[in-house]
Design a protein around this nucleic acid. Structure first.
Lengths: 148, 148
DNA sequence: GTAGCTGAGTTCGAAAATCGAACGCAAGGG
DNA sequence: CCCTTGCGTTCGATTTTCGAACTCAGCTAC
């Protein structure tokens, strides 16, 4: 099976993993969550090649993670890339990566940006929770019943 | 900046994103969390090319996400790939992908495997939480203070 | 009106990553 | 011995990515 076929696998983990597991896609989403919206700005801040950037943006548009929104500047109409609701819902994925990165890849390093809850100023952390009892879960607390 | 340089960026989100954003890596981790441990089994279930599989396993070994553990079978010593504590801590990342996949990529589809909390039988869900007040957070509840 | 600038891509040859198939190798079994 | 198994390595062909140049539309200045 080529990599691209995972995009159509009947598995709710494989398909997101294949989509976000393409080179640049996670880094592009990071940049978007940090507020970048325009082609030129992605290109400048990430130093990605323009053709690959075009491709990744188009994939995310097609998946309805991003939308192109027109706006005016100097009387000219341009477009910017913004998250859809589906895209905004990827926030836990990015935060899970960051929570992991803070714990395991930067023990005594300054964060390059700081996040806090608007309402109370608290920090931000991703976690896995039981929908039944509300307990926080680790891999070992969870049983897998495979169907394939 | 080439893609690989993100591996040394001083950002606790970029570096995990660059590591897990390599092709196959997320799918490989999925397979590991589902219990696959041996080279041949990865190769068979994912149909990844052997050389790339070798490379990805080595990267994850080097990052200390996986460890090679000897075991005996038929009196022969072999090795299997298992998660370290650092690796097990990636669980929220995978669960965040799955939570997203269930909501947005499979509205009326059977799950290909089922997960439940050993203790109470409940379902599993990833979320982002405020470390101050404990509220569940979405992207819009969080303020970013960039330092770069 | 025409020359230049700017944002947003497109094109294309070179370089890197991935693929698949064959090969290597060590340990056991027959 | 020769065969099998698990686990890789090697290598030539294909696919992706890279980087630099090119295009194009809509202003802005002259």
């Amino acid at each position: 099976m080529p990599y691209s076929n995972f995009a159509s696998m009947p598995c709710t983990l494989s398909r997101p993993a294949a989509l976000l597991g393409e080179r640049w896609t996670l880094l592009l989403l990071r940049q978007i969550f940090l507020g970048t919206r325009r082609f030129e700005d992605f290109q400048a801040t990430m130093d990605i090649s323009r053709s690959v950037l075009t491709d990744r943006l188009n994939v995310l548009l097609q998946e309805n993670v991003l939308k192109r929104v027109p706006y005016s500047e100097d009387g000219r109409t341009r477009h910017e890339y913004r998250l859809t609701e589906k895209g905004r819902d990827l926030y836990p994925v990015l935060m899970a990566l960051r929570t992991w990165g803070e714990k395991w890849m930067a023990p005594d390093e300054e964060e390059s940006f700081h996040l806090h809850h608007r309402d109370c100023g608290g920090g931000v952390r991703a976690k896995v929770e039981c929908t039944g009892c509300g307990a926080e879960l680790s891999a070992r607390d969870v049983e897998v019943t495979a169907r394939q």
